[in-house]
Structure formats: C-alpha cells, structure tokens
Design a protein around this nucleic acid. Structure first.
Length: 551
RNA sequence: GGCCUGUUGGUGAAGCGGCUUAACACACAUGCCUUUCACGCAUGCAUUCACGAGUUCGAAUCUCGUACAGGUCACCA
C-alpha cells in the first residue's frame, strides 16, 4: 500500500487536495514593505487589555505600511468556547478603531483568503496533513491517554526529557499492516509530525522584538491533527499563516517556547516561516511578583471596566501606545495636535520584558485628553456615557444642553485648560450643584472654612446681595465689588497687606469668597466662582443665599 | 527538573562602550502664582543601573557565573 492510499484511509472525506488550496489562495498583491498581520483570538470570553494591546499593535503595524490586518477566529478547542465572544471581540475592535480589513466581521466574512474561522477550515488542514503523510513526514499515533502518561512517568524516572519523540514515539514504528489492523479495531488515533530534528542542534530565530533567540531544534512528534479531526494550534498556525500570506506573526511571548515546533512545521510543509514579533505581556504586581494581567482574576483587565468608568477610548489607546513604544510620549508631546494614528510604531522600540499596568498613568492621560476637548464634545461624550450608565445624568443633560455645555466650558477652551475630569463618571460628582434637581440645601453638608459663624455668614451674604452683587458686572468689576465688601466688613482686600499684618484684619478676601462659594454650591472647591454665578443667575443665587439668611 | 527570556528610582521607561555628575513622563514633596480648587511655574526625589568576577585606558552598556522573576514543556490556545 502506498502512503497516499494510507493517507486517504487515515483522513477520509477530504474534498480537495493541497494543490487546490495553494492555487485558491495566491500571493497577495501588495506594495513593497507592506505588512500582513492578524489578530487571532480564541472565542473564550470578554476582551482584556492584553488582547486589545495586541490587536492594536497588529492593526497599527499593518496599516502604517499599507498592508492588511485580518481577524481570524481560532476555535479549534470547542470545549472552551464561550458564547457571544466573537461579537464582543468585534465590538471592541470597532470601538477602538482597530478595524480588520479582512476576516470575520459584523456582517459575515470579508476577504479572499477565508474562511477565517478555523472550525470551517477542517478540509484545508486535512488536505495538508494528507500531503505530509504522503511524503512520509507525518504518521498516525494510537497512543492512548494512559499510554502517554506511562511514557511520561517512565521519562521522569530515567530523567529524560518529557515528550513523544525518538524511540518514545512508539507508533512511529508500526507497520502499515499494524496500522490497518488498529484502525479496523476502531482504535482512535491522532496524526503526528514525524520529526527529523535533533535536540542537540541549535536553531536561531530572529524575533522582531526580542532579537536573535537560540533554541534547540524540535525533535518532538507534535500532534497536528487531533482525534476529533481538527488541527492543533501549531498546525493551524502553520497552514493558515502560510495560506493567508501573513508576513508578521504578532503574538504574546508565551509562544516563543513553541518556536522550534513552528519552525519545524513550516519546514515540513516546505514553506518559509513568517517573521515573528513576540510582545511582552502587560502585568500587574502582586505580593511583590509580576503576574500577567489575567482575565479571570483581574476585573481591571477587562476593556469594559474602563467603559463603565467613562474613560475615553482614545485615552486608552494613547496609554497603550505609550506602553507599546517608549518614544511615543515624546512624539505626542511634540505634536499635541497630531492624529495619533500618524505616529510611526516600530518593533525595535518595543519592550523585551513585561510592563506593569499603570492605572495612575492611564488616568492622567485620560484627564489630559478630556481637558483638551471642546465643551460640546465633552457634552456629547458625557451624554453617550450617561445613556448607558447613568440615567439621572442623561435626563439632566438632555434637558439642559446649552447650560451643561456652558458649565463644561468654564476655563476650558484655552491654552491651559482646567483638568477637572479624569473620566466621564466624574462629571456628575463635580457639577451636580449646578442643577436644582440635585441641589437640596436641607440634605447638604456645607464645607465652610475659616468663617463658620452663622451670624457672620448671614451678614456677609446679606450685604453682598443687597449692596455688592450685580448681575451685569464683568469679572474684574465683580471681583472689585467683592473686595469692597471685604473692606466694609473688616477683611483684608489686599492679600499682600494681609500677609504682612494678618492681625489687623478679621480675615481676607479669600475667606469671604469661600463663604460666597460654599453658600452657593456647598463645596469649598469649585471652578471659577464668577463663572458659576453667571451661569446660575441672579434668582438662583438669591434663593441659595436667602436659605442661610433666613435660617 | 529541561529549554527560553528578562532584571535601570514608587511606576512607565531612555540610554546599548566615552557627549550620563542616568533623559523624559506619571506619582510624591516643597515653594511661587492665585478669590477656592485645579492649571501653570520653580525646585527636590537612582552617588547609581540585581549581585559577583572578567574584557577594556574607560561598562548601565560586552563576556561569564550567581540570585531573583517571568514564560513554556497538552489531542488548550
């Protein structure tokens, strides 16, 4: 019996042969230097920072070279599949603007190199596996789970390397007759690579990020087709990235140790491996040790965590860019008005070791990002946020659109804007007192400071309303009136004079202004009082002050 | 245990043989400015690049060893 015939018995029902598929997916016609990358997640739940980071780098590297970024779903382990994962992945990629040019998309598949879901490519993998069997580069293995355990135990006993290789790969030595007999007995089998590698040989792989990595050559007879007929990750990677003409495989560095396997597989298939870029993980520190950010253990690892907080997507992107390329921040400072997509990302600037996820830094970036936004954009984003997470805020924003925009505009659209909000969930905490619906004096705690005697407070408020407040005043007039008020009541209007001789006064204009501020908003710290007063208007000011005067 | 990788301040890190008495940013601290806060400005914050040895006129940068950390050794990706 020929090997070809054997391959047909081993993998029956294969529709096409390898040659057919090679012709189906010709070389891509791309400009010189264009990079083809992919993001190839398993559908196992929500997207976390590490995955987002990876997809960012992949899409960026492809797009800045005029290449292709595609999405492939690696669902060859059906036990681990989580429902709706693909939808979640797609949504996050879209929200962040890491749109795949090809592959699985919201409205079906796109591109000429599909299918892009591995479970739909079974025939392709089997065609390639048949080809390997035919060439004597792969063989069926009938080792059961128990057999493998026994081999492992024995290897441990004699201190040999663990694995199915060399003489340990017992099914390698089966005759065709024995193979046929086992099949007839209904024994299950997998297809393994018949490795011709030597562990004592060294191979060198040039990683785009980590540089040259020297490793022993693979001599393990890795499984390429599982007993359910689906490929292992390793084999699917080799076949898919060959057929889809991926130029750069960008993935987490937990994969570097399987590099020898992958190199061996590409060699068996007879094609040149793609370039590899293994990115270091984003970690957190726990009990003094670095630990990769985990989907299960770290809620702050979920991309959705930041949506709930109202951190703008752009800010997250900027943060990821600073982690990805150490020179990004410099560039961003130098080009404050540039589109961050114009930044040229480079593999050579990526860290070889893991980075600690720095929430403070993310928040700082977010704060700066929001501070530079025009008030109308802050409004739109806040509304979008409120619609999903805060309906009370949503109602207020809808009802008082222009008013809200005016609030956000206080000390905003200028060179050095205020930086009040880190995230959209901060907005209500910092502006609630501007809305009568949320301002109920009976329930408030007023944060009076130096001046807290209620008679004195009454006196200040009363005099201010009667004599010094005028809605028409511009800011400097308004401030001068406050100074006059201070003088009349024995508070220093000149801070320098006060500092030189504090005992000569009851206090100073700052103390007085705090009374006016707290009585109006209940808070000791607010944006510019003049602006707040202008927005609240005469009637509301009088109403809020009279609450104290009549108390 | 084998194989691979990494280790620069509280954090992200730059630097990759002399221009480094270690850049920049975040955080922190102090002061100034100021009607509060925030902003802004100024200053401070690693005598030293895990440790030890070696190469060199010269090392954070090259080599070796040690320690520590991470990854990986599946019919999971």
């Amino acid at each position: 019996m020929t090997l070809k015939e054997l391959s047909e018995i081993l993998l029956p029902n294969v529709e096409h042969d390898r040659k057919y598929y090679e012709e189906l997916y010709p070389e891509r016609n791309l400009p010189e230097g264009a990079i083809v990358t992919r993001y190839a997640p398993s559908p196992t739940g929500f997207v976390h920072m590490g995955a987002l980071y990876q997809s960012y780098i992949s899409s960026k590297m492809a797009h800045q070279t005029g290449g292709i970024f595609f999405l492939r779903i690696e669902d060859t382990d059906q036990k681990r599949e989580v429902e709706n994962s693909v939808e979640m992945i797609l949504k996050d990629l879209k929200d962040f603007g890491f749109n795949p040019d090809e592959g699985v998309t919201l409205d079906g598949e796109k591109g000429n190199y599909g299918p892009y879901t591995q479970s739909k490519r079974k025939d392709i993998y089997q065609a390639f596996a048949r080809d390997l069997i035919e060439k004597g580069l792969a063989y069926p293995c009938f080792l059961s789970e128990d057999d493998e355990k026994e081999i492992r135990d024995q290897q441990a006993r004699v201190k040999a390397r663990i694995g199915i290789y060399g003489d340990w790969a017992r099914s390698r030595f089966l005759t065709t007759e024995q193979v046929l007999e086992k099949i007839n007995n209904g024994e299950e089998y997998v297809i393994r690579l018949k490795s011709d590698g030597n562990f004592n040989n060294k191979i060198t792989v040039k990683d785009c990020i980590k540089g040259n990595i020297e490793m022993p050559e693979n001599d393990i007879d890795v499984v390429i087709i599982k007993s359910d007929g689906l490929p292992t990750y390793h084999f699917a990677h080799a076949v898919d990235d060959h057929l889809m003409h991926t130029t750069h495989v960008i993935r987490g560095d937990e994969w570097v140790s399987s590099l020898p396997t992958h190199i061996a597989l590409f060699k068996a298939i007879g094609v040149k491996p793609p370039k590899y870029a293994h990115i270091a993980p984003i970690s957190k520190i726990e009990n003094g040790n670095h630990r990769k950010l985990s989907k299960r253990k770290d809620p702050e690892a979920a991309v959705s965590y930041y949506s709930k907080l109202g951190i703008p997507k752009e800010a997250v992107k900027i943060y990821l860019a600073t982690v990805a390329n150490s020179n990004f921040e410099r560039w961003f400072d130098a080009n404050p008005n540039a589109d961050i997509n114009d930044f040229k990302m480079e593999f050579s600037k990526m860290s070889r070791s893991d980075s600690l996820f720095d929430q403070e830094k993310l928040y700082n970036i977010s704060r700066n990002y929001i501070s530079k936004l025009p008030a109308t954009v802050v409004y739109d984003s806040a509304l979008e946020y409120a619609k999903e997470y805060d309906h009370e805020l949503e109602e207020l924003l809808v009802k008082y659109k222009d008013y809200s925009i005016a609030i956000y505009n206080i000390e905003r659209e200028r060179k050095k804007p205020r930086k009040d909000y880190i995230m959209y969930s901060d907005i209500k905490n910092q502006t609630w007192y501007m809305y009568d619906e949320l301002f109920n004096p009976e329930e408030l705690e007023y944060e009076f400071a130096n001046i807290n005697d209620s008679e004195e407070i009454k006196k200040i408020l009363k005099l201010y309303l009667e004599k010094y407040y005028n809605e028409e005043d511009d800011e400097s007039t308004w401030f001068n009136r406050m100074k006059e008020l201070s003088d009349e009541l024995g508070y220093a209007s000149d801070m320098k004079a006060y500092r030189e001789n504090p005992d000569a006064y009851k206090g100073n204009v700052a103390d007085v202004s705090i009374v006016l501020r707290v009585a109006l908003t209940s808070k000791a710290q607010t944006p510019n009082l003049y602006n707040l007063m202008s927005l609240l208007g005469k009637d509301r000011i009088a109403k809020r002050y009279n609450y104290f005067i009549q108390k």
